[in-house]
Design a protein around this nucleic acid. Sequence first.
DNA 1: GTGAAAGCGCTAACAA
DNA 2: TTGTTAGCGCTTTCAC
Lengths: 350, 350
Amino acid sequence: MVTLAEVAQHAGVSASTVSYVLSGKRSISANTRQRVEQSIRELGYHPNAGARALASSRSNIIALMIPLRTDMYVPVMMEIAIAVATTARTHGYDVLLLTGEEGPDAVRRVTGSGLADAMILMDVELDDERLPLLRDGGAPARAKPRVGDHQPSVLIGLPADTAGLTCVDLDFKATGALCVEHLAKLGHRDIAVIGEAPAVYERHTGFAERTLDGLRLRSQELGMRLLHRPCEGGYDAMAVTLARIFDERPSTTGFVVQNESAVEPLLALLRQQGRAVPEDVSVVAICPDQVATQASVRLTSVSIPAQEMGRHAVRQLVAKLDGHGSDEVVLIAPELTVRASTGPAPSATH
Amino acid sequence: MVTLAEVAQHAGVSASTVSYVLSGKRSISANTRQRVEQSIRELGYHPNAGARALASSRSNIIALMIPLRTDMYVPVMMEIAIAVATTARTHGYDVLLLTGEEGPDAVRRVTGSGLADAMILMDVELDDERLPLLRDGGAPARAKPRVGDHQPSVLIGLPADTAGLTCVDLDFKATGALCVEHLAKLGHRDIAVIGEAPAVYERHTGFAERTLDGLRLRSQELGMRLLHRPCEGGYDAMAVTLARIFDERPSTTGFVVQNESAVEPLLALLRQQGRAVPEDVSVVAICPDQVATQASVRLTSVSIPAQEMGRHAVRQLVAKLDGHGSDEVVLIAPELTVRASTGPAPSATH
DNA sequence: GTGAAAGCGCTAACAA
DNA sequence: TTGTTAGCGCTTTCAC
């Protein structure tokens, strides 16, 4: 294994010079820099991560905690994780993968050991037990965050109380509003919302409730009627839910779906009942683009900006680590893409 | 930040004693151990990861490289990643998440810097450019693997040449055979195989080809006729493929599907054509259990043992790191679960 | 612009 | 069973 000292000797300079060439923390003459870089290449030198971490009390590692239970839509989590990893690399950080299994202990362990300089938490519960450990963590008061400080952290998703926390999420309230507006413009007046499973509303309710707020508020403002029905995924549950909806409100012409595993069943059932999409009913989905484009009808949808959330979280974190403050809560503006599943309300065409 | 020295002082022992209490590498009197553990708890001590890595040249980190392109079925990758992370923790390791983006450089970087003690690679290409760096890596020749050695590594999946490599994978050949046998027992004689997209066969062909080998060999032995058709996912592609199959071989009564995104389209199309599953045709899938159980017909399937592969990979790696040798190639035996999509061949019931 | 040297916190000989 | 101590390889003050 090649050490910095060996590089120094080979280049005929001191160890500190090599170190400074690497870190760029003081100016080096072009000549010296070249010789050092040459030696580094010739010897195939790689700085030792442990030594670096010890001397600088910076590991250049970001911990990413992903939830164990996979009732969140998995591909989205994966996309976020990958975006986090690649973005982190562009800032010189590696990513440590933590599962929710250890719970708060993982936070303490990683924090206490200096294994990671900062953490990103996905799928935070509304009242998560890890939050107290994170609150006001990483306030950029000191120039150089030290091992054992509260770790700078960013949450992907919003807990109930965001005080002292930095969070990134899609603006679900605006998302709900956007869906309603789109349907309103097309002349729809009676809208049904197919929501997540009831359990979701009870548990990490955050995003589901916020979407509903947006849907309700905007539909009220626009004088539309809204029917909201949570729904377990799958054909059977969807069949029951759909029957009830048309039973209760036969005039329904617009659907908003926020539940990946209900999307295809809904489309299949509508087809089966002879209701054409978008001629008879329109469907707007809140889901990843992949789901929207690969469904049996190409769906008008508001996408979940997984990549953007991952990237954003890393940037916020890096800003904190560099001592720049950063916003508390960042809500990403939703974008609605019109595809083949929405059209003018039937009555509007008569 | 609490250091080992402070713990030592607080407990009235030497630093090395504390260290040995932690590592268990030498016997400690019950009394001393208690005092030390007490101090650790009182002071809230966490060993510093960097210092540890430097002194021991062991980071206790396993790197997991996941592919960037997501044409593999994402939830399976995620499940493997999570299994790797949780299993690693039970062995005292953390997991560093690397994306394929950096390519071979990531291997060098992690290897050279001692960031990780070992690596797990997912979705290896048949002739992957990272393999040379890994071959014969981590042969447990020396007692203590040192930074800068070739890293011990385990591949999930099989490259073309496994010499000097440790690999874990499902036994896809046996999987193919198993599917055929199941259909044979039910009296099916004409079988169609819906495969992965053509690109998959061209690229990281490994598992797809091996499955096909098993299917062909066993069907030949059992005197069955086999038609194999690669298929892009989605309804349209599936419709074309299915039409061709029945066109070419109207007597087809059994299907084997190895393509997650073809499963639901296949079922929908069969339904649409008035072919009942399993009364008219039987369908066996090779896919994750989740897909099999959530499809519109509960599918008889051979599952992809994601968790088991992840767990296995970690165990192999830990064995290597501990100096125990380990097998070169581990093929996990397939298991077929009978569900509602397979039944006696129609002719057999006449 | 460069060098010398003092640690960073821990592990693992070597001693006792 | 326990203590002493010399590093591990790097960063960073301090000095020139």
